[in-house]
């Protein structure tokens, strides 16, 4: 007959933590980041974008040429050791102009996207979460704003504030946030009845906390994907505005105005058109790849 203490054998010291699965617990962000990194295309896009941003920031600072000088004796030159991408028709260094233009275009792209997100997420979130009459009123306002073409706002703003970077940004933002707001509202309306939201409410969480801590987090996927598409959209809008001549004012340059300036000389000096357009393409490719990668990383179940 065994003694009671003999039914069980104590574990040895080495066996004590056998139930422990040795994988570090990961935060949501880290999880996403790791999944993102496994997507080579997305990673390449991110690196490309980082390089373009870095070069656009530093380039004009270290360039020996000003973006607005004038020296007609060296106008329209091809690439040389002094001017790597040649010069434009006023003898300005093309590389400096392209980098400077990229800086303005990227600034417009990112800043206006950030503003759009801020307004759109708050507006859509509040409208969707509170619901009822407020939702109804807020969404009709959105409809009205949305039904007027962006170009009209932009031209009106240009007339009032003149042609500069800020009016382009305001113009792009003024109805750019509407899409985000609709998207967020749709998500929130669907999520607010879900169990976890009800549970949080039952446990006495404040409405603010539920909205921002529980619901918003779950809409992050679509929002971020939407944002990566908004940046190239804003850059395109600016390029288009500059192309039709109501963008930023000369001698400042954006990628759009550079393309516009080159249009006149297209058949003789096509390379002047190629440089800014190439940069626009690279930025947009990079952002699209990043967007795609983020979409998969944020929503692994939906991954193809």
């Amino acid at each position: 007959m065994l003694e009671p203490n003999e039914y069980f054998e104590p574990l040895g010291a080495s066996e004590k933590r056998d139930d422990y699965i040795p994988i570090a617990s990961k935060s949501f962000a880290r999880d996403v980041w790791e999944r993102f990194c496994t997507n080579k295309r997305a990673l390449a896009g991110l690196i490309l974008l980082a390089v373009i941003v870095a070069v656009a920031m530093i380039g004009p600072l270290v360039s020996p040429y000003p973006y607005d000088g004038m020296d007609v004796s060296i106008a329209n030159q091809g690439p040389s050791s002094a001017h790597w991408l040649g010069t434009d028709q006023m003898g300005r260094d093309e590389l400096t102009r392209v980098l400077y233009g990229a800086r303005i275009s990227l600034t417009i792209g990112f800043v206006s996207t950030a503003i759009n997100l801020l307004i759109g997420v708050l507006y859509g979130g509040i409208s969707g979460y509170i619901g009822g009459k407020l939702d109804m009123v807020m969404m009709r306002i959105v409809d009205v704003i949305f039904s007027i073409p962006a170009m009209i706002y932009i031209i009106l703003i240009m007339l009032i504030f003149g042609s500069n970077v800020y009016s382009v940004m305001i113009g792009i933002c003024i109805n750019g946030w509407v899409n985000t707001a609709r998207l967020v509202r749709g998500q929130i309306v669907a999520l607010k009845e879900r169990e976890f939201a009800v549970a949080a409410f039952t446990l006495g969480a404040s409405r603010m906390k539920i909205l921002f801590k529980h619901l918003m987090i779950n809409t992050l996927g679509p929002i971020i994907v939407n944002a990566t598409l908004m940046v190239p959209q804003a850059i395109f809008n600016e390029a288009f505005l500059s192309f039709i001549g109501i963008g930023i004012s000369a001698p400042q340059a954006s990628l759009g105005t550079l393309a516009q300036d080159a249009k006149m000389l297209l058949s003789r000096y096509p390379m002047q058109m190629v440089y800014p357009v190439t940069v626009i393409c690279l930025v947009i490719f990079a952002l699209n790849f990043i967007g795609e990668g983020l979409e998969e990383a944020l929503n692994p179940k939906g991954a193809r």
Partner: peptide
């Protein structure tokens, strides 16, 4: 271009 020339 005229404007930019004058400005520069």
């Amino acid at each position: 271009l005229l404007a930019q020339g004058i400005q520069a």
